[in-house]
Simulated assay, not measured.
Amino acid sequence: MHKLRHICFALLSLSFAASTHADETRYISDDLTTYIHSGPGNQFRIVGTLNSGEQVALLGVNDSTNYGQIRDGKGRTAWIPLDQLSDQPSLRVKVPSLEQQVQTLTQKLATIDADWNRRTADMQKKVAENDSTLQGLRNENQGLKDQLTVARKKADADAVQLDDKQRAIIMQWFLYGGGVAGVGLILGLLLPHIIPRRKRDNRWMN
């Protein structure tokens, strides 16, 4: 009877300790497959096993035995040493998440690489177009320079021809003026001899 009272008191204490903790998510450590017990100690009956990485809910803690009361994914309630629980997701949970992140990052990198290649191609195309436009402007500028050189040579030739024509006209006027002066001089010399002779001839006839 006395022993039964102690057992009831211990169960009440355990129940009280378990009720003071809210449910918390924990994970079975990655490096083991652990046994779960019906009570907070290895002296209690084993009621099953949990594989490493499984997620469980921590219902309470027995500080005296350092055991925690858990509920697994199958709905079983049992006890397990606290050192076999972790508050971080196990590799069993992390690996698929990490693989998904790697896949997502790989896709982003592929997209970035494709976008970078597209932008590079666009820039190269624009540079080539600008080079072509620049070369066209250079060719046009050189053509204008050539036309200007030809025009200047033609203008110089026209100026030379104009000078020759002006000299020819001046020479023609000079010759014409000299001719007129010469004719006038001759007439001036001849007329005095011609006119008086006629007058004398007329006077004898009268």
Rank of each mutant, 00 (worst) to 15 (best):
M1E: 05
L4K: 08
L4E: 08
I7H: 09
I7L: 14
I7F: 08
F9R: 10
F9D: 13
L11D: 11
S13K: 09
S13L: 03
S15V: 11
E24M: 07
Y27C: 04
S29R: 15
D30K: 06
D30E: 07
D30A: 06
D31Q: 10
S38M: 02
P40E: 02
Q43H: 10
F44S: 14
F44E: 11
V47Q: 09
G48R: 04
G48D: 00
T49C: 01
G53M: 02
E54M: 12
V56S: 06
G60S: 01
N62V: 09
D63G: 03
D63K: 07
T65Q: 14
T65S: 15
N66I: 02
Y67M: 13
Y67L: 08
G68L: 08
Q69R: 13
I70K: 05
D72E: 01
D72F: 05
K74Y: 10
G75I: 05
G75M: 06
T77K: 09
T77D: 04
A78V: 00
W79S: 07
P81I: 00
P81N: 05
L85V: 07
L85P: 11
S86G: 07
D87C: 11
Q88T: 12
Q88F: 09
S90G: 10
P96Y: 05
S97L: 15
L98H: 01
Q100R: 12
Q100G: 07
Q101L: 14
V102W: 13
T104R: 11
T106S: 15
K108V: 04
L109N: 07
L109K: 08
L109V: 04
A114G: 11
A114H: 13
R118Y: 08
M123T: 09
K125N: 13
S132A: 12
S132H: 00
Q135F: 00
R138F: 00
N139M: 00
N141T: 13
N141G: 07
N141D: 10
Q142C: 03
V150N: 10
A151S: 04
K153S: 14
K154A: 11
K154H: 11
A155H: 15
D156R: 08
A157L: 15
A159E: 14
D164A: 14
D164W: 09
K165I: 12
R167A: 15
A168R: 12
I169H: 11
I170S: 02
M171A: 13
Q172I: 10
L175F: 14
Y176R: 11
Y176V: 09
Y176T: 12
G179M: 02
V180L: 13
G182H: 03
V183P: 03
V183S: 08
L185A: 07
I186F: 01
I186R: 01
I186Q: 00
P192T: 00
I194F: 01
I194E: 02
P196R: 01
K199C: 04
K199Y: 01
N206P: 07
N206C: 10
